Amino acid sequence: MLDLVKLSGQIPGLTQHLHQESKASQERLRRALQVFGRLQQEPQVWQSRHVDWGSHLSFTCASPAEPLENSRPKIEPLKGRHTVVATDGSQIVPNHHEIAYCSLINVGRVVLHYGTQQWPLLDSLPVLLYPSVELQQNSGLDAEEVLALRRAQAEVEELAQLALSVPRRRTTLALVDGSLIPWGLEPLSGQEQRLWLNPLLAALERLRAARIPLVGYISVSRSSETVNYLRLGLCPFLSCECYRYCNSDQAPPCQTFAPLPDRVFWGSLLQPGERSPIWRSGAKVLNPFGEHHIHCCYLNVSEGSVGEAEIARLEFPAWVAADEELLKRALAGVLSQVQKGFGYPVALAEAHHLAVVRGGDRQRFFALIEQELIRAGLRNVAVSPKEAQKRGGIA
């Protein structure tokens, strides 16, 4: 039980810390904007350093995929007949103290049709995983990490299947909650990564062939990929070889405005409905992606003034970034969804509600398993003594 009386005495310290951090953040932003001004005047300096030394950096650094100009046309919400497809997932992680060592992936599926009288699709698809090979794969990842990868894989594969079921003549947008970059694959070798990437890349190829733009929507992103590009102009050495010149125990000289998230930086520059330039992600795990290499931009999806804005990170494959029509459809569709959802894409919000596994669902899940185990004649069907005591307590 949480003792709120004892906790309340610690809150003023948090308030003071947040106040100090707000001032420090404003100073970091001021320095970053100064460097950005220099970058716009001498883009070739940063570009040459990134080409020559991008593979020698100790941090993930995106690179501009289009000119870094200040002004871009304001994006208008998508109108007319169109369909938005979205998926989101949740899971029950395996637990040795439960009745059975198994896990569950639940994918929420949403298909919303606009400008038609067609009924929407609102449902979820549960998948039960139980063989040890399903949860380990000898990859060095623990069961929970493997489960997260399987969930992300299921989300994209199901999204592609739903999107391709929409009539080809219909304007369609595919949305997924979260990043399209499979960060969880970074600890794996190239061969092990391929086992996970092949199904993902196959789904992306199906969407590309059907000309259906895919967007990963990230709210309150913590990424600093684009801000890290500014650091290339602050390196005092002839070559940007981080591992050679910079001591890991000290802050490098290029890190004068870190930590500064991209969303804070672009939030100071973007008006409602405006987007940042498009950037090519520098994540090494994307090296095998080819024409599906993930690009991103930041979009001010708010209707209020700058300073109160929600700056969303939008991720999409290279073939969306390179196609003006698909990119326009993707950005306009996202903005329309955010407005319909009063601040967050309505299709993704519905997919989340359909996917989430609540406490009662979890209890019913294991109760159903218990019934089947008893019916099958298995004995000693019960949770561990530790789990039983945690559920009952002594008070």
Rank of each mutant, 00 (worst) to 15 (best):
S8H: 07
S8I: 01
S22E: 12
S22Y: 08
E27S: 11
L29I: 01
R30G: 01
E42G: 03
G54V: 01
G54Y: 09
G54A: 03
P73E: 05
L78R: 07
K79P: 01
D88K: 07
G89H: 02
G89A: 04
H97T: 00
A100Q: 14
Y101P: 08
Y101F: 15
Y101A: 08
Y101V: 03
L104V: 00
N106D: 10
V110T: 03
H113P: 03
W119P: 09
P120N: 08
V146D: 04
A160E: 09
L164G: 05
T171Q: 13
W183D: 05
W196C: 11
L197P: 05
L201W: 05
R206V: 01
R208H: 08
A209C: 09
A210L: 05
R222H: 04
S224D: 07
V227D: 10
G233P: 12
T256P: 09
F265L: 02
W266K: 06
G267W: 04
N287H: 07
P288M: 02
E291S: 08
I311A: 05
L314K: 01
L326W: 10
A330Y: 06
L331Q: 12
A332Q: 15
A332K: 11
S336P: 06
V338S: 15
A349I: 15
G360Y: 06
D361G: 08
R362W: 03
R364I: 00
F365V: 00
P385W: 14
